[in-house]
Simulated scan of single mutants.
Amino acid sequence: MGCTPVVRGFLNITNEACIELVNQAALLFNSGVRSLVSHDSDSLRSHMPDASFVYVNSYKIIWDMLHHPKKYGIRETGRACCEVSPGGVLCQKEGPICSDRTKYVFFDGLHPTDVVNARLARKAYGSNSPKEVYPTNVKKLAML
Rank of each mutant, 00 (worst) to 15 (best):
L66K: 05
L44F: 14
M48G: 00
S38P: 03
V7S: 13
P86F: 13
T14I: 04
D40M: 11
V22H: 12
K70P: 03
A17V: 02
V33A: 05
D40E: 15
V84Y: 10
A17R: 13
C82P: 07
V37T: 13
G32R: 15
V54I: 11
D64V: 04
N57I: 01
D64C: 04
I62C: 00
L28P: 02
K60G: 02
N23D: 12
I74V: 14
V6H: 11
V37S: 06
K70T: 14
I61N: 04
V54L: 02
I62Y: 02
L11W: 06
A80E: 06
N15E: 06
L27Y: 06
V33W: 02
G87S: 12
I61Y: 04
P49Q: 09
C91T: 10
H39V: 02
G78W: 06
S46T: 12
N12G: 04
E76L: 01
S41L: 11
E83Y: 05
V89H: 00
I74F: 12
S46D: 05
R34A: 00
L21I: 04
I19Y: 15
V89L: 07
V22W: 10
A25G: 07
H67K: 09
I61M: 03
V6G: 02
T14A: 06
D42T: 14
R8T: 13
N23L: 08
K70D: 15
T14G: 07
Y55D: 01
F53H: 09
H47I: 07
S52R: 10
L36Y: 14
S52H: 07
S58T: 13
F29C: 08
G32F: 07
